[in-house]
């Protein structure tokens, strides 16, 4: 009852303030001029990214430097997490010791196998159509990271490591993705463009669909980088707690 009183007070204050505010508040009906510029120019016009999706064209073209530094922040955060959980060489070898086993019943494991293939396809579709539909590199990469998570849940992390996807490889794939982003950003300098320039250096249209110039490459590399980064984090988090306590020398 005591908690309900607080809730009721908050609700009445909220509704009262909202009613008071609503008397001289007009909901916004028009576009801001800057938004209008982006909507007009993302596909047509002189300053064009040749992408029908205005949000992706802003993220990777008009405000590309913001996004480049955002990716850098994400990269540094993951490196920081890995540093917090760092292990010596012998310890990381010991963390890999263990047998992949099927703890869950048979149907769960069989379904996991099929779902992993389907999720990989769906995530690739999200990432590669970032310039046409909602979605893009980050969203696709997040969907990609679900696949290793499912395998960890159904078969344990040792199954992933036995088949060649361990933490080091994940970091390598992640670095390849970041390197790809950097190379795509630097390519225009070779043909006397400026840094992160999009049109007319990259082809705007190919195979019957608008590519958005460099957007499709950025999306592809961001997809790899984000997916592999999340995979590294999940692999670290799935080290058994007893092993980690032993490495740290903590007794509890």
């Amino acid at each position: 009852m005591k908690r309900l009183i607080g809730l009721i007070i908050i609700l009445t204050i909220t509704l009262g303030v909202a009613y008071y505010v609503s008397q001289n508040l007009t909901p916004q009906k028009s576009l801001h001029p800057l938004g209008k510029f982006y909507l007009k120019n993302s596909y047509f016009g002189d300053y064009s990214a040749k992408s029908p999706e205005a949000v992706t064209s802003i993220v990777w073209d008009y405000r590309g430097l913001d996004t480049l530094f955002e990716t850098a922040v994400f990269f540094i955060a993951i490196i920081g997490s890995l540093t917090l959980f760092r292990l010596s060489k012998e310890q990381s070898e010991e963390a890999k010791q263990g047998e992949p086993k099927r703890e869950l019943p048979e149907p769960v494991c069989a379904v996991t196998k099929i779902i992993v293939a389907m999720i990989l396809a769906v995530s690739a579709s999200i990432a590669l159509h970032g310039q046409l539909t909602p979605g893009g590199g980050f969203q696709g990469g997040s969907a990609l990271a679900v696949a290793p998570l499912l395998i960890i849940a159904a078969y344990s992390k040792y199954a992933l490591e036995k088949n060649g996807l361990d933490k080091t490889r994940a970091i390598i794939i992640r670095s390849i993705g970041l390197l790809g982003i950097a190379l795509t950003a630097l390519t225009p300098l070779l043909v006397k463009g400026y840094f992160m320039q999009n049109q007319p250096i990259f082809p705007g249209k190919a195979l019957g669909a608008p590519l958005g110039g460099s957007l499709v490459y950025y999306n592809l590399f961001e997809y790899l980088a984000v997916g592999a980064g999340f995979t590294a984090v999940f692999l670290l988090l799935s080290i058994p707690e007893e092993k980690f306590r032993k490495f740290l020398g903590v007794k509890q």
Binding site: K36, A54, A77
Partner: peptide
């Protein structure tokens, strides 16, 4: 132009979401 919403806040939020998530990962670890 008459019906579409403003894309600029969405793009900025997309950036902010990624940075917020990176910070959250670090804090959680």
């Amino acid at each position: 132009l008459n019906t579409a919403v403003d894309p600029l806040p969405q793009a900025l939020v997309l950036t902010a979401v990624v940075i917020g998530m990176a910070v959250n990962i670090l804090i959680a670890f």
